[in-house]
Simulated scan of single mutants.
Amino acid sequence: MAPLLDVRDLRTQFHTDDGVVHAVDGVSFTVEPGQVLGIVGESGCGKSVTCLTVMRLNDPKLSSSSGEVLYKGENLLTAGSRRMREIRGAEIAMIFQDPMTSLNPVHTIGRQLSEAVLLHKDVSRKDARARALEMLEAVGIPRADRRIDDYPHQFSGGMRQRVMIAMALINNPDIVIADEPTTALDVTTQAQIIQLLKDLQREFGSAIIMITHDLGVVAETADDVIVMYSARIVERGSVASIFKQPRHPYTWGLMGSLPRLDVNVDRLVQIPGQPPSLLRPPAGCRFHPRCPYAMATCHEKVPASEPVPGDPGHEDACFLDGTVKQREASQLLGAIYEAGASP
C-alpha cells in the first residue's frame, strides 16, 4: 500500500543577492495515514522550509524546488495553482508558528473559520458558521458561542493557537502540518496544546507532521522521528529507537542538552560552535566542524544513510563504526539516567 505522502529527494534553493541558499538538500520521507511524524533540529536546519515546499508556499520568484512530493500518488511540485488551492486547507492543512501574524486582525474569528469552510465545501453561510462554532468548542474555547465574533487581538496566545488548530482541522484534512505549535507559549499552555493535538488526532484520524526543536514534544506526540541538520536528514527512526538507541553524534548533542527538572546543574551541556551557513556549507559531513568524533573521511565525503542492524526503519548518516556508536549512545543514556537518579 502506497503511503499517504511520499517525499523523494526534495531540494529547495533560495536565490539571494549573496548567492544560492540550499535550504533543503535531498530530503526524503513518507507519512502513513494516522501517523505522527516528528521533524526535529536546530533553527535554520530546514524543517519549516521542507513543509512549506510540500505546501508550495515558498515565493516562486525567489525560490526553486526539485524532487517529488507525492500526495496519494500526485506530484504536488508539478500540480497547477488551482489544484494546490483545492488541496491546501481541505486535504493538507498547516498550523503556523505565529498565530498572531497568521490570523487576519480585521476579521472576526468566526468569519475566518467560516471562510475556510466556504472555500472548500458547498454549504450555506449558516452551516459554515455552525461548523466554525463546533470546532471552537472542540478545541476548548470557553463560551465559544460568544467568542466566535471576537477579533484575534481579544484572544490570548494560547487561545489564538487553539483557533489555528480549529482552522487546520475544520475540513477534516488527511494531513496536518504543525509548525512549532507550542513556541512562545508558557509551559502550562504548551502541555494543554500538546494534549489537545493528541486528542484531536485520535478523534479525526489525521496524519500529523510535527515540526519542533523540542525533543520533549516529540516524545509526547510522535510515532516516528526525523532529525535534520543543515538541510539534510542525519537520522530517522521510531521514537523508541531514537530515544533508546540514538546513533548520530548530532542526536546525542540534542539529547544531552535537554533540560531536566530532576537534575541540578549550573549550565546545560551544549553543542559547540554554530550551524553552518547554507550559502556555503562545509564539504563532506556538514556536522564535522562541531563533531568531537570527526575523522578525515568526514571532511571529504558525504555519509550515506545506512540502516541500523537489528532495528528496522532506523537509519543514520555517519561514518563512525557501529560498535563505537552503540558504546557512546549507551554512555550518554547511562549518564542521563545516573543524573536523573541522583538527588
Rank of each mutant, 00 (worst) to 15 (best):
G256I: 02
R8G: 06
E235S: 10
R129V: 05
G340P: 01
R280T: 15
E134W: 13
L52W: 05
L77M: 11
L268K: 10
V218L: 09
A138N: 07
L332Q: 11
M135V: 08
R83M: 07
E328P: 06
M94K: 10
G340C: 06
L185W: 06
T16A: 12
G157L: 03
L185F: 04
P173L: 05
V139H: 08
S63K: 04
V225L: 14
N264P: 01
P3N: 06
D6F: 02
S114I: 08
A231V: 06
A93E: 05
V218E: 11
A207P: 00
E74R: 14
G205S: 06
R290M: 13
I193N: 05
I271A: 10
F29G: 06
V7D: 08
S66Q: 13
I209E: 03
L5C: 04
A296H: 04
H288M: 08
S63V: 05
C298A: 11
R56A: 07
L37R: 02
A178C: 15
M255D: 14
R232L: 07
D127V: 11
A294C: 11
T30P: 01
S63C: 15
E68I: 00
V117R: 00
A178H: 09
V117E: 00
S124Y: 14
I211D: 08
H299I: 01
L196C: 10
S114Q: 14
T188K: 04
F14Q: 07
M210D: 00
R147M: 13
G273V: 02
G44L: 05
L103V: 10
I39E: 10
S48P: 00
P60F: 09
L57D: 09
Y337D: 15
H15M: 10
V106T: 14
A184G: 05
D6Y: 03
D266M: 14
R232K: 14
S81I: 09
K47R: 08
D266G: 15
V7R: 04
S241M: 05
I336E: 04
S66T: 14
S64M: 10
P281K: 10
R147S: 11
S156G: 11
D179W: 01
T30H: 01
L133F: 13
V269I: 12
A138I: 07
A116G: 04
T101K: 09
N172H: 12
R129Q: 14
R160L: 10
E137I: 02
Q154W: 03
S43R: 13
N104R: 09
G253R: 02
T212I: 09
V21G: 00
C318K: 03
F287P: 00
C291A: 09
A130V: 03
D59Q: 13
R146M: 14
G67W: 02
